[in-house]
């Protein structure tokens, strides 16, 4: 029982990442009708926003310590971060320590700008092209973005730790009457789950309770009629692309302490996120979120040794198996709307 609970918790944070990426994918598909294969790269760029801010905050000046030597026997160059010199060692170290949460504020404008540039500079030229063309161009763009990041940051993962206060794990075992540490769950993964729920709630609230969101929803339902009412729906959809990019970016920023960012991390999530979108129902925002969490939990449970003893290799195929089953029984996905991608 404790093992199942632990895997459900695991699935929640994995599902959080799937849900956030799938939410952005669905926003772009629902508004612009574009299948954006570069969305995983936006997640990756978000994680590298955290890396970049960490490096900016760690910018240092050199002093020579004659009493010590480096690996070549030369006097040691000691690097002191500027923030430590300006604000004192304690405050300076605390600022660097909190670089990941601070990167949220750094990533939002960066990601919205990247989203605007992507949409205006490239993707808008492919609105009327077949989905295959859109997939090819956005996939190509994803590879270009990956290679740019690799050029500047290298191929190896870069450690981007969470603040010290979130190190370690929360002991759910004792709380639920199990043995101590039977269900231990990392603090930062809990933070990630609650952060994701907050972002998802904020996006839904924005679409549901603002005039802007109402127009966007109307445009998603019937773009032509909204246009005939004299509303510039294209401009609003461009803004939605920026918001979707920011959602993916924020998912990446907060994911950085979970797995050290590397240039390829977006691709690792991309395919699964597309399956999540299809299972949830093309164009359905609640469907994307529901499918994200559902598939995340199923993937985690299927990787239990007891399950794999019965069905070897099930953890590798469970998501695709569930996708096939759902599409056979509900061809539009869990919450898909009639008419989306059916023309």
């Amino acid at each position: 029982m404790d093992a199942i609970l632990l895997q459900i918790l695991n699935g929640l944070d994995k599902g959080s990442a799937y849900a956030l990426i799938a939410l952005g994918l669905t926003l772009i598909f629902g508004t612009l009708g574009v299948v954006n294969f570069a969305h995983g790269a936006l997640f990756m760029i978000g994680a590298f926003c955290a890396v970049t801010l960490q490096r900016i905050l760690s910018l240092s000046f050199e002093t020579i310590d004659e009493s010590r030597t480096d690996f070549l026997g030369n006097p040691l160059k000691v690097e002191t971060p500027y923030v430590e010199a300006w604000f004192g060692p304690d405050v300076g170290m605390a600022i660097i320590d909190w670089s990941v949460p601070l990167a949220i504020f750094f990533a939002i404008p960066v990601m919205i700008t990247i989203g605007f540039i992507m949409e205006r500079g490239l993707i808008k030229h492919f609105y009327k092209r077949p989905h295959a063309d859109q997939i090819l161009v956005t996939f190509g763009l994803a590879i270009v973005l990956q290679e740019i990041v690799k050029y500047f940051f290298g191929a190896n993962p870069i450690p981007t730790p969470a603040p010290d206060v979130f190190r370690g794990s929360f002991d759910f075992g004792v709380l639920l009457g199990f043995d101590p540490y039977a269900i231990a769950y990392p603090y930062w993964r809990l933070v990630y789950f609650f952060f994701s729920v907050t972002i998802i709630g904020a996006v839904f609230a924005f679409l549901q309770f603002t005039t802007f969101g109402m127009v966007v929803r109307a445009g998603m339902a019937d773009r032509e009629t909204v246009g005939l009412l004299g509303i510039n729906i294209d401009r609003r959809f461009t803004i939605m692309f920026g918001i979707a990019a920011a959602v993916a970016g924020l998912a990446g920023v907060m994911y950085a302490p979970i797995n050290s960012p590397n240039y390829h991390m977006g691709m690792d999530f991309l395919v699964l996120s597309f399956v999540v979108v299809v299972v949830g129902g093309m164009g359905s925002l609640p469907g994307a979120v529901l499918a994200g969490f559902m598939l995340g939990i199923l993937e985690s449970i299927s990787s239990m040794n007891e399950v794999k003893a019965i069905f070897p290799g099930i953890d590798q195929i469970i998501i695709y198996l569930v996708a096939i089953l759902i599409l056979l029984t509900r061809p539009r996905g869990l919450m898909g709307r009639k008419g989306v991608m059916e023309d």
């Binding site: 944070d13 540490y181 993964r189």
Partner: peptide
């Protein structure tokens, strides 16, 4: 994480 979790028990 899903491979690490079973180690706990």
């Amino acid at each position: 994480s899903s491979y690490i979790a079973p180690v706990l028990n």
